[in-house]
Design a protein around this nucleic acid. Structure first.
Lengths: 204, 204
DNA sequence: GCATCTCTTGAATGATCATTCAAGTTGAAT
DNA sequence: ATTCAACTTGAATGATCATTCAAGAGATGC
């Protein structure tokens, strides 16, 4: 079986899911071994350390998040619609049984005290996302306003990612998000079934 | 020296600060021993387990937070001013060198995966705070609107607690918060030096 | 077919983890 | 003065931690 190298992407993905759920300290190498199927030796040859693997997992998650965001913004019909969809998707996500917020946010909060390379990278990834939003908004708004709106967006995104744990009704959260971001084109959005079960229920 | 019981409140406070900074998994009992000055034996006699001590620390933090919030809301001159002050204080806090967000939020994110007693308690404390806000808002707004505004507030508070790590300028955050919560009486607030150094700088 | 190189394996390592407990110390009661 | 109960102490415990490494097992080149 050897010499058939393991699937690096798959291992990173599995590790990312574990770290995302359990955190850096909460996930032991033993758990990683079980989750990825890779033995300690291979793990350390490939990633150097637990921190190295975590870094790879973080990069994977960040790149994937950025790619998804870019895609959503590109597919939109009217300006700002993609942002609305993104926010609504986050609220819907928070209702899932295996919901575990955002990997970057959890990393930021857990690793801030350590102050090492990890924390710096996480901040950097989060700033990248904010820049993605502000660059996009700058296509329509003044640079200053785009910045302010982007900051307001990040505030709401972070909020949703934590508020999602409190188990309140989705519609409450959505209403609050709409109220806080009234400059987004909420009305032009196509009506979709909010539970995402694929069945569209027309309003009476 | 014995029979002089240790100061329970002080120990809980020291432990809370440590857990707040380092997280549950990130803070070992050895670190707790160093931070509190209490030896393992006393620690376990008094609190039963690491989780028991964490629970006590959490309760201490939650009660103190709620007390401070109640006090701020009571001291206000015009309606809603206390909320503004509270939010501005949070933004200012995030600029401190030893900033470590909110203990409840960090606990929520770290312990959600475990799904035990701890997580339930944290959600409960956070919901208490939201209810504090919504009860207060219900004095002026309709119950529905009060609920929605409270949710929007929580969204912003959670947002500030995470956004604070990104190291952006305070004024950007403040502007975003004001934009997202335009129904608050920002204008009637007394002008204070934003850095809190006690020197009031009059605008030209 | 044999040597070599690359990658995998999993038991071993020492450190650190949460927790326990027998022994010690002190203040109060008798 | 002696006993007792209350509380502290810190070394010991076994589990688990991240990490290492000698041994093994295909693939590759000759």
């Amino acid at each position: 079986m050897t010499r058939v190298q393991f699937d690096r992407e798959q291992v990173i993905q599995d590790a990312a899911r574990l770290f995302w759920q359990q955190g850096f300290s909460g996930a032991s190498i033993q758990m990683v071994v079980k989750a990825t199927g890779l033995k300690p030796g291979s793990l350390y040859l490939a990633f150097g350390s637990k921190e190295g693997l975590y870094l790879a997992a973080l990069e994977h998650y960040a790149h994937q998040s950025q790619a998804m965001l870019r895609q959503t913004l590109k597919e939109e019909m009217s300006f700002g619609e993609g942002i609305c969809r993104q926010l609504l998707r986050m609220v819907e996500e928070s209702a899932r049984a295996d919901y575990c917020s955002c990997f970057l946010i959890k990393s930021q909060l857990e690793l801030a005290a350590s102050g090492g390379e990890l924390q710096h990278r996480v901040s950097s990834y989060l700033n990248d996302i904010e820049r993605l939003y502000s660059d996009y908004l700058a296509r329509v708004y003044s640079p200053d306003l785009a910045c302010q709106y982007a900051a307001s967006l990040m505030l709401h995104i972070f909020g949703i990612r934590v508020y999602g744990y409190l188990g309140n009704k989705q519609e409450t959260t959505v209403a609050a998000v709409k109220a806080g971001l009234p400059w987004l084109p909420w009305d032009t959005l196509g009506n979709e079934a909010p539970t995402g079960n694929g069945v569209k229920i027309p309003l009476p």
